[in-house]
Design a protein around this nucleic acid. Structure first.
Lengths: 333, 333
DNA sequence: CTGAAAGCGCTAACAC
DNA sequence: GTGTTAGCGCTTTCAG
């Protein structure tokens, strides 16, 4: 049962009795086509089951309908949700998202971006602002819309949508101080590679300093943020510094681990010890104890980034867009 | 600063002083090229910074270097990890993964697959075996390698890699019965659309039936599986059936919510009430109480699926591959 | 082993 | 409005 060759634009044109160009124009609503012919073409296309070949269109036109997305990890639900938002934002545009995972490795990131650029994507969505210089060069010279996401603390190549992690850290510190906490500890994972977590830490520390205080102790570890790591580091930290009344974590996963430790150890949360995470993941709400967190609009960030690429609008205005989100603090009290 | 046109194969050929074809062959190691020329070409390519245009290659050759991945959701960490595994499996092959999210909507799935096929991908990785007939037609006639993942209970279009959810459910039931549990409840979300969760439920129920028992009560809800939903449904279920000594959940997220309820309600877990989830997510290990789960090798599944598409090997053997994984039960006792 | 010719399927530029 | 002519950058023939 020889599978028939997939119909091409020529087939549609022949079927409709017009030229390839008219068919092309009619199908993508470009240029002017008489209503009669437009209908003719559309019916013909439907009849023979024509599906355009975006590969050919991309090669011919300047830009492909691909949107490259570069994220550091997919094990982290946060980035999965960003992807999800991007998929939503692209919806109906006929574009396809392609993704690349860097595992927080700058060299891998360079490779991934370079590789993606070879596809002549319509746009590139890249996580973060702190790429090494050669990667930035790649992005600056790329003949595509570049959108950097998740971060605002720095100088974007072009458009960027995200939030200030420094400010987010500071805001959380202010809120915790206002809630009467005085003895702070910190627990974080992968700070060597996660520049945004580092910025939150610094923002938090800076705010404490402004109030004449600081972290009494910190516990950090390389590698992924897991609840298990959070639990262990918290146990360790509290054993050494039982006087702490507040711990700031680099994210909710670690904070949840901290909560689990406290439950197991019979530590009263948040009364005796207040735990603060970051992201506002869903499960935070249903933990048996309340913890503080900053809710980040990651799906919205993805959606907004996708929209910037999908919409050619904004009249080429030379000032690149900068969409600012602010995480919302929830002390859970 | 006029950005120079990106170098093409012709440029490389000219630079190396050979024909386009020799350059092409040398660069992708196809056909025979004299070592001398091969070196000449490679150096020339490096010198002028040549990066191939996969769009053109795809249009010219039969298949593109794109791999389509169709998943129901990205809000669920499980599928994000599958994607992650796919990215690993593709690594170094020069292929690009493109993804589409269906939100468990069969119509959306049809559209996504159809759209992806238009790119002439090298392969398609699709979640599940239970597509509607028209979607199956699309897949069967697709001139690409199709790999269905996550499920084995049914007839695959071609290759498939995953596990039997029916068997997984049954195995968990057997294990719980062996552990002495006698009064079973069930909590699930989104069973109307998640056929695999349904299969686990059925497998579990069938096993109970073989032992002359069954679920005393079930609580289900539409929509996503969230810890919050798990917590609420558990509270509801236990209020109505305080005599239960075991609850089977459609996944770990719900089970965690159940655990949180029990902690808050002072119910002894697992002593008085054993909770069993599915997936073996990382956080299960660090929960303050132990719950049972089935560990699923989702990253491995992704990696294996990618490999099937990346490797042309296995000598065209007409028997499509079928890679079987078995979840490993951990009662957490 | 190497090269010349002929497209892949589509669209940008011009004519008409 | 509509058709024609050229490619996009690569690979597949098929001759040498």
């Amino acid at each position: 049962m020889a599978r028939k060759r997939r119909p091409t634009l020529s087939d549609v044109a022949a079927e409709a009795g017009v030229s390839k160009m008219t068919a092309s124009r009619a199908l993508r609503g470009a240029g002017d086509v008489s209503k009669t012919n437009a209908d003719l073409v559309r019916t013909a296309a439907k009849r023979i089951g024509y599906v355009g070949n975006p590969l050919a269109a991309s090669l011919s036109g300047k830009r492909s309908g691909l949107i490259g997305v570069v994220i550091p990890s997919l094990t982290n639900i946060v980035f999965a949700e960003v992807l999800s938002g991007i998929a939503e934002g692209i919806e109906g545009s006929g574009m396809q998202p392609v993704f690349g995972v860097t595992n927080y490795d700058p060299d891998k990131e360079y490779e991934v971006i370079r590789n993606m650029l070879s596809w002549n994507p319509a746009g590139l969505i890249v996580t973060g602002l702190d790429q090494p210089e050669d990667t930035l060069g790649l992005l600056r010279n790329a003949p595509v819309s570049v959108v950097q996401i998740m971060d605002l603390d720095g100088t974007p190549v072009s458009a960027c949508v995200g939030m200030s992690h420094h400010a987010a850290g500071a805001a959380m510190a202010e809120a915790l101080l206002a809630a009467g906490r005085t003895a702070f500890g910190y627990v974080g994972c992968g700070l060597d590679r996660d520049t945004r977590a580092r910025k939150r830490f610094e923002g938090f520390a800076a705010a404490l300093a402004r109030h004449g205080t600081g972290f009494e102790a910190t516990r950090t570890r390389e590698g992924h943020s897991t609840t298990q790591a959070g639990r262990e580091l918290t146990a360790d930290l509290m054993a050494a510094h039982p006087g702490l009344d507040c711990i700031y974590y680099s994210n909710d996963d670690l904070a949840a681990g901290g909560a689990f430790h406290c439950i197991a150890a019979g530590l009263e949360v948040p009364g005796a010890l207040l735990l603060a995470g970051f992201n506002g993941l869903d499960f935070v709400e249903s933990l048996p104890v309340r913890i503080a967190t900053s809710r980040t609009p990651r799906r919205e960030i993805g959606r907004a980034a996708a929209r910037i690429i999908v919409d050619p609008d904004r009249g080429e205005d030379p000032v690149a867009q900068r969409i600012v989100f602010s995480p919302r603090i929830d002390l859970g009290l």
